[in-house]
Design a binder for these strands. Structure first.
Lengths: 178, 178
DNA sequence: GTCTATACATCGATAGAC
DNA sequence: GTCTATCGATGTATAGAC
């Protein structure tokens, strides 16, 4: 593992524990086993380091999601969409935990998250349309809102994996998907 | 308005904009039109200042909620519970906005919020029980999760008041409350 | 590529005058 | 009650040697 990767790994851990603002470059250097100067050689500023961290994992998440939801429609898409967060999060747990922590105060995280979420809204709307819901746009927003809130609960340890699966089951039944 | 109140008011604004950690006591003093030393005379530490800010408004919120939900049961309680956030938030908009921003990284905010939420879970469970739901405990958790996510969306400007009301209407219909 | 040493700003907090 | 002045610690970032 290169020193650059060590820095990224250490940053992810520390940013998640304390937030980006509260994490000093000194503590990152210590945790990564490198000198503080090296951080600035690689990333220029602390803000850049955070952005690189965010960018990389959101691209991975977009890839994962594209495959996960590909060529599904109607019922199938909704089922997969409800189940998405648990697989996505398990795949990048530390990253999503960090995003949850820093999101409300970090415009960069917000921007990347919006880009990540955007394509789903339209697909959701089409699925509800195909299922003849009265107000597909609103239904899409509601489901998106809810799924977004479950993953947040999951990464913030408010609910367990088992609870998530129970909720997801109830949800699928309520939407007449199973 | 006393200087102490000016400090509290300025803190609320600045903590919301940037987070508590990123807000310096110097900037609070400037915004409040007082000397920096006065902040420490009144509150001892910056952390204490934040806690006093949080404590006061959570007590107000608990009072408001108690009255709002009093002597309701079953259907009525669920309806009122779904409608609660919009009235609660409008009553203390800046405060809830701040809480939304600092919550994931602030253990004190988390603690007060939990205390605030706790009583509702049991009441929700009883209401679902009275309505003969199959799994009242799980239903209570789901609705709590969802309502919690709507108020967050509302204070973070992700949804408008009108949207909130539409969602709340759909929700009440889905639970056969209207 | 990587380190040591250090510059320089800003932080929270205190002392002491009025 | 309120201010000015100041302290020591800590923050990000840079210079320069190896």
């Amino acid at each position: 593992m290169s020193k650059k990767d060590e820095i990224l790994k250490a940053s992810l851990v520390l940013f998640t524990e304390q937030g980006a603002r509260a994490t000093s470059t000194k503590s990152i250097a210590k945790q990564a086993g490198v000198s503080e100067a090296l951080i600035f050689k690689y990333f220029g500023t602390k803000d850049n380091l955070l952005e690189e961290l965010i960018k990389k994992d959101y691209f991975d998440a977009i890839d994962f999601t594209r495959v996960y939801l590909s060529s599904k429609s109607g019922k199938d898409f909704l089922i997969k969409f409800i189940e998405l967060p648990i697989d996505l999060v398990d795949n990048q747990f530390d990253f999503w935990r960090m995003i949850y922590k820093i999101f409300p105060l970090n415009p960069i995280a917000q921007q990347y998250h919006n880009n990540f979420m955007k394509p789903s809204l339209k697909k959701l709307e089409k699925s509800f349309e195909a299922l003849n819901y009265e107000n597909p746009a609103l239904e899409a927003e509601i489901l998106l809102l809810f799924v977004d809130s479950i993953w947040k609960s999951y990464v913030s340890d408010k609910i367990t994996k088992e609870k998530y699966q129970e909720i997801s089951y109830v949800l699928k039944k309520r939407y007449n998907l199973i």
